[in-house]
């Protein structure tokens, strides 16, 4: 079974976000970039599928050369190959989806695995877009996965419940937290991974379909009326909720 795992480089959630000089993107200075946390579940699932069915795991990211760092982490976890689609621009999700679909068309994986969402743009659109470009089925938010032959059975999280879905290979999956327990790479593997090759590709020629008009920081318009915990303060809170906010 040939498995393609798609990962992304994202700012750590504790990073302070500052808008760059262009007014459209973030200023990367001082921002700590990490492997998108959900992608660890995607890598682990790829490795477990290989353990069970044989084959190879290829990990790809579409991003700047600095994203090699997360590819090396995937290699240290056990991925066989790593591919950097060298695209510092990443104009929009369609452009990124097209780059991944281009790679899939050349390498014909049996399954493509994403993390459920990347925590930077939270778009959750790539698995469905890649699947539709390829004409493949997709199952998103997968919390349990079984593949027997070409039959895929997946449990996915939906609003207020779960769904059990069957489909066939080749298909696209997005990994929900809880799908597995991602392994920690061992130190010797981390060291070895640094010398493993990372193949480089150019991005898809597909044009972006959205344009960023601007990026702004939220303006806090909160009242910030912070009280103590005395009987009188609690009474005052109830009064404010009733008379001022009119929510009670």
């Amino acid at each position: 079974m040939n498995i393609l795992v798609c990962i992304s480089l994202v700012p750590d959630t504790t990073s302070k976000i500052v808008v760059g000089a262009d007014g459209k993107t973030i200023n990367p200075q001082g921002v700590k970039f990490i492997l998108n946390p959900y992608d660890e579940f995607a890598i682990e699932e790829g490795l477990q599928l290989k353990q069970k069915h044989g084959g190879t795991v290829t990990t790809v990211t579409v991003g700047p050369p600095t994203a090699k760092e997360i590819l090396q982490r995937a290699l240290a976890m056990g991925s066989d190959n790593a591919v950097l689609v060298n695209d510092s621009n990443c104009a929009d999700s369609f452009a990124v989806a097209s780059s991944i679909a281009d790679l899939a068309k050349e390498t014909s994986p049996d399954v493509i695995i994403f993390g459920r969402q990347s925590i930077d743009y939270d778009s959750l659109v790539l698995p469905g877009m890649v699947a539709e470009i390829l004409g493949w089925p997709s199952v998103t938010m997968v919390s349990a996965l079984t593949i027997e032959g070409t039959t895929v059975t997946a449990e996915r999280d939906i609003d207020g419940g779960k769904e059990s879905v069957t489909t066939t290979l080749p298909c696209v999956i997005s990994a929900q937290k809880g799908l597995n327990e991602p392994r920690y790479p061992k130190l010797p593997d981390i060291m070895k991974a640094k010398s493993k090759p990372v193949a480089e590709r150019t991005p898809s020629a597909a044009a972006a379909r959205t344009a960023v008009v601007g990026m702004t920081l939220p303006d806090s318009k909160r009242l910030n009326k912070i009280l103590g915990d005395s009987e009188a303060d609690i009474n005052e809170l109830v009064r404010l909720l009733h008379e001022e906010a009119k929510v009670v």
């Binding site: 959630t13 976000i17 044009a207 972006a208 344009a211 960023v212 601007g214 990026m215 920081l217 939220p218």
Partner: peptide
Amino acid sequence: EAVRPVFAGKAFQRLSST
């Protein structure tokens, strides 16, 4: 044109379509 939260709501992106 649409506005959407990004970076866990730490910023808002305004987008247009082409």
